[in-house]
Amino acid sequence: RRKSKRKPPPKKKMTGTLETQFTCPFCNHEKSCDVKMDRARNTGVISCTVCLEEFQTPITYLSEPVDVYSDWIDACE
């Protein structure tokens, strides 16, 4: 008699959501930077609500707010 092989359980999909508020690289306030994605103009704007620092970068249809933040961090270095 042959043993029946069980199929492995399906893999769980990533359910965690990406951050939309970030720590400002200038004033170091946590969750003080908000990202606005202007898909019509293909630009992402991130601004700090505390020190009013602002950064704008081009985006694509695949871009997420975390991509705008990482572009800002890269531009600071």
Score class of each variant (00 low, 15 high):
K12D: 07
K12Q: 08
A75C: 10
S47D: 15
S63Q: 06
S63Y: 07
R1A: 06
R2M: 06
Q21E: 11
Q21V: 13
V66R: 10
H29N: 12
V45G: 09
C76M: 15
L52H: 07
V45K: 03
T20Y: 06
D74I: 13
K11G: 09
E30G: 13
R2N: 15
E53K: 10
V68K: 02
T17H: 09
T23K: 14
D34W: 05
T43D: 05
D67T: 10
T17V: 10
T49Y: 12
R2T: 14
G16S: 13
T43G: 05
K5P: 07
Q56W: 03
V45I: 04
A75P: 01
A75S: 09
P10C: 03
L18P: 15
Q21S: 06
R39A: 06
Q21G: 10
S70C: 05
R1C: 07
M14F: 04
C48Y: 00
T23W: 08
T15H: 07
K36V: 11
N28Q: 05
V35E: 04
M37D: 03
T60C: 01
K13M: 11
R39H: 15
C76G: 09
D67P: 03
T15E: 05
D74H: 12
F22G: 05
F55R: 03
P58D: 08
K12I: 12
S32W: 07
K5Q: 15
K31E: 06
Q56L: 07
K7C: 08
D38H: 08
T49E: 12
I59H: 01
S4A: 08
S32I: 10
L52G: 13
F55Y: 13
C48D: 03
T57Q: 05
F55Q: 00
P8Q: 13
T60I: 04
E64A: 14
M37V: 03
A75T: 11
I46Q: 02
K12L: 06
K36Q: 04
K13E: 07
L18H: 14
E30V: 11
L62N: 14
P10T: 13
F26I: 10
R1W: 01
I59F: 00
S4N: 08
I73W: 04
K3I: 15
Q21T: 14
D38N: 15
K7I: 08
S47P: 01
Q21Y: 01
K31G: 07
D38V: 06
E19I: 03
C33Q: 02
K7H: 15
D38Q: 05
I46N: 02
P9T: 11
I46M: 06
K36R: 08
T43A: 07
A75K: 13
T20S: 09
T43W: 05
M14R: 14
R6L: 08
E53Q: 14
L18V: 10
K13R: 07
P9E: 09
H29A: 11
P9N: 09
T23H: 15
T49A: 10
S47R: 14
C33M: 04
V35A: 07
F22A: 04
K12Y: 03
E19P: 05
M37I: 04
T57D: 03
G16H: 07
S47T: 10
I59E: 03
I59T: 11
D74Y: 10
T49F: 06
T49M: 05
A40H: 07
F26S: 09
G16T: 10
I59N: 00
D74S: 14
G44S: 05
P65Q: 09
P10S: 08
V50L: 14
P25Q: 12
D74Q: 13
R39E: 09
G16V: 13
S4Q: 05
K31I: 02
H29W: 04
E64V: 09
T20L: 15
E19R: 11
F55N: 04
E30Q: 15
P25A: 03
A75D: 08
S63K: 14
F55L: 04
M37L: 06
H29V: 09
K7A: 12
M14G: 06
R41C: 08
C48M: 00
K31W: 04
C24S: 02
T60D: 14
T57Y: 01
T17Y: 09
S63D: 05
T17G: 06
T43H: 04
K11H: 02
Y69K: 02
C24H: 00
N28R: 09
K11W: 01
F22H: 08
L18S: 13
L18F: 05
D38P: 00
Y69Q: 00
P10H: 03
V66L: 10
E64W: 04
I46G: 04
D67E: 10
D71W: 04
M14A: 14
Y69M: 11
D67A: 07
T23A: 11
T43S: 09
